[in-house]
Design a protein around this nucleic acid. Structure first.
Length: 618
RNA sequence: GGGGGCGUGGUGUAGCGGUUAGCAUGUCGGCCUGUCAAGCCGGAGGUCGCGGGUUCAAAUCCCGUCGCUCCCGCCA
């Protein structure tokens, strides 16, 4: 080894030892005859003191360097050293002089007095400063191009370390419970349902393609049929869809499947794992244990979204019935058209200026909401607890009767100083619009306790959703998800009413995992495919292997998949999953470091029997 | 596929119709024996993402384009 110790381990007890350290120069402080080098490696920072003055060592009683020339040489070298040079230091560990300790450093009680310093490699001036946190503000494109430098920064290195700890914990937790870790293929078959596949051409089979796994879903079910009973994998998954702060084209899942289980068994296992994990890697308390369980319907009604952030209240209210027959056309028409009129309370929002109030509509626009009705409560209630018209500021109160106003205020549980905000539209607009607005208000009014881990389960998802463009029913989760036992009977008659044996686990408003009990009987799976509008030959071509496998004694089974990056990002308080991936892609799916995707040469294409049709204008 | 934001020395930014394009940091040189974002002095470094247009005059206004980013759609 080129080092005897790391840069993070020397303490007062090591004083007097002769050591060799190696690492990167985090910073150099040149005082002329005395130069300090902060030497950094993965484990920490140690101050190296370089001087040609023998008194430095002698003064503390450590063995003086035998050769003063060594120290002079080291000083000369130190003056040439620059940030991020890779150096090796020989020297004596010494207590720092009284009053010169650095409490910011783990190694701050000691320093290494250099008797030898050699440059192992020089470094160009980096495009951004590695030490400190200045680089937090550097354009992410620069950071991604020089990712290997970005990862030297403690913040990013800490994220990788946290990820490692989390994955290590998950593995050991599952090993302890008799799970078998099995690797499944990366080269699979393209399946029609769901996300776009990344596709890989076959050289041996011209015109044929493999697909990269969107998840190992089918493989893990086949492993259950194979009798594995308890399987897991830290699995890389690929989806050729547009990116987001919480979505990358390739990502890692904890993929898990068990036989002879029901939904509560999987949920209990994962809940136990998350509770232990939280204690291990986070200082934040869990808001509620056991985790609250919300039905999908409940979540949509109260939060407008199936992954509610429960760190704060501000639940939505529904006044559809109350205003159905009001004189306010917008509400009346929306109700008549089968829509919902819902809203929420903005605590203290009555103090907002007219412009600020109007600006709130920008937060609901992207979801298709055409407007935002508002009532500010600026005055006091009367003796009966009602708010008379002069206590309200609103462009719409004139359309409502006193009873209707009272009903709205009551539904909103609004008080003096609050602002009531309402959206009237199709439920598919009202809910997401208000869910988004709720988050915005929660942030603005500082209602979100960022020191909480608010887990919850969302269950009873609809099994199917109607795709109006394709004019057919689609699986909400995936086509292998089982309906609840009592709902199988209405699969054909009322597909929209069928609830799935599915469960999502949500943390602070992020969906971190989802799973289900699967169909394990061939005839039920066939019914499901037919319900999805696949004819027999399609089913046979795409999923014949599954149907056949189910006929050889498939056990009841179910499982879950959890997004590792999302989990790590939440524990790391990172705004994007890119911050917890070693080499992420940009929002346009480009690897700025390797410059992928790239063209391949004609010979490669010829071998693959592929001709590229350039998009026009290229 | 659509919408919003951003793009000025290496980095972060100010300027937003006429400036020798300012500041900070980094960087380079000098001085300096106790610093830890070391200090002090001095220097170099940008033509304002790219292309076109408007104008006597463009970093600044307009159009297009590219890149990054957030969001909608999409994400079984």
């Amino acid at each position: 080894m080129l080092k005897t110790h790391t840069c993070g381990e020397l303490r007062a007890a090591d004083a007097g030892k002769t050591v060799t350290l190696a690492g990167w120069v985090n910073r150099r402080r040149d005082h002329g005859g005395l130069i300090f080098l902060d030497l950094r490696d993965r484990f920490g920072i140690t101050q190296v003191t370089v001087s040609d003055d023998a008194a430095l060592e002698a003064s503390n009683g450590a063995a003086a360097s035998k050769n003063g020339q060594d120290r002079a040489q080291a000083l000369e070298t130190a003056s040439q050293v620059r940030s991020e040079f890779v150096v090796q230091v020989n020297g004596a560990v010494q207590m720092r002089p009284e009053g010169f300790e650095n409490p910011e450093l783990e190694t701050g009680e000691v320093e290494v007095i250099a008797t030898g310093l050699s440059i192992l490699n020089e470094a160009r001036t980096p495009p951004f400063v590695i030490s400190g946190n200045q680089a937090d503000d550097v354009d992410e494109a620069v950071r991604l191009k020089y990712r290997y430098l970005d990862l030297r920064r403690p913040k990013l290195a800490d994220n990788l370390r946290l990820r490692h700890e989390i994955v290590r914990f998950i593995r050991s937790f599952l090993y302890d419970r008799a799970f078998l870790e099995v690797e499944t293929p990366i080269l699979l078959k393209s399946t029609p349902e769901g996300a776009r596949d990344f596709v890989v051409p076959s050289r041996i089979h011209p015109g044929r393609f493999y697909a990269l796994p969107q998840s190992p879903q089918q493989m893990k079910q086949l492993l259950m049929i194979a009798g594995i009973e308890r399987y897991f994998q830290i699995a890389r998954c690929f989806r050729d869809e547009d990116l987001r702060a919480d979505r990358q084209p390739e990502f890692t899942q904890l993929d898990l499947e068990m036989s002879f289980v029901e939904a509560p068994d999987i949920m209990a296992l994962i809940e136990e794992m998350l509770i232990e994990l939280s204690a291990l890697v986070s200082d934040k308390p869990i808001q509620q244990v056991p985790f609250p369980v919300l039905s999908y319907q409940d979540a949509m009604d109260r939060y407008g979204i199936d992954r509610p952030d429960l760190r704060f209240g501000l639940e939505l209210f529904d006044v559809t019935e109350l205003v159905r027959n009001s004189k306010f056309g917008v509400f009346k028409n929306a109700a008549a058209a089968g829509g919902r009129i819902k809203g929420l309370r903005y605590p203290g929002g009555a103090a907002l200026s007219r412009k600020e109030t109007d600006d709130l509509i920008e937060y609901v626009r992207p979801y298709g909401a055409k407007g935002l009705a508002w009532i500010g409560i600026t005055g006091k209630s009367d003796a009966d607890g009602r708010f008379p018209p002069e206590s309200l500021r609103s462009p719409i109160v004139k359309f409502f009767s006193a009873e209707e106003i009272d009903g709205i205020v009551c539904a909103a549980a609004a008080e003096e100083g609050d602002l009531i905000l309402m959206v009237a539209d199709d439920a598919g607009v009202t809910n997401p619009a208000l869910a988004n607005l709720r988050l915005e208000i929660g942030a603005r009014a500082n209602l979100i306790d960022t020191n909480l881990l608010a887990f919850c389960w969302v269950v009873d998802f609809p099994l199917l959703e109607y795709d109006s463009e394709e004019q057919r029913w689609e699986a909400t989760h995936h086509p292998f998800t089982s309906a609840r036992d009592e709902d199988w009977s209405i699969l054909e008659a009322s597909p929209g009413e069928v609830r799935a044996k599915a469960y999502d686990v949500v943390l602070n408003g992020w969906e971190i995992g989802g799973g289900s009990i699967r169909i394990h009987r061939s005839e039920q799976q066939m019914r499901m495919f037919q319900r999805l509008g696949l004819n027999e030959s399609e089913v046979d071509e795409k999923f014949g292997h599954m149907l056949e496998a189910f006929q050889y004694g498939a056990p009841p089974h179910g499982g879950i998949a959890m997004g590792i990056e999302r989990v790590v990002a939440l524990y790391a308080d990172a705004p994007s999953i890119r911050e917890v991936m070693a080499f992420p892609k940009t929002a346009t799916g480009v690897d700025l470091l390797m410059e992928a995707p790239s063209r391949v040469d004609d010979r490669q294409l010829a071998e693959l029997h592929i001709a590229v049709r350039e998009p026009k204008g290229d």
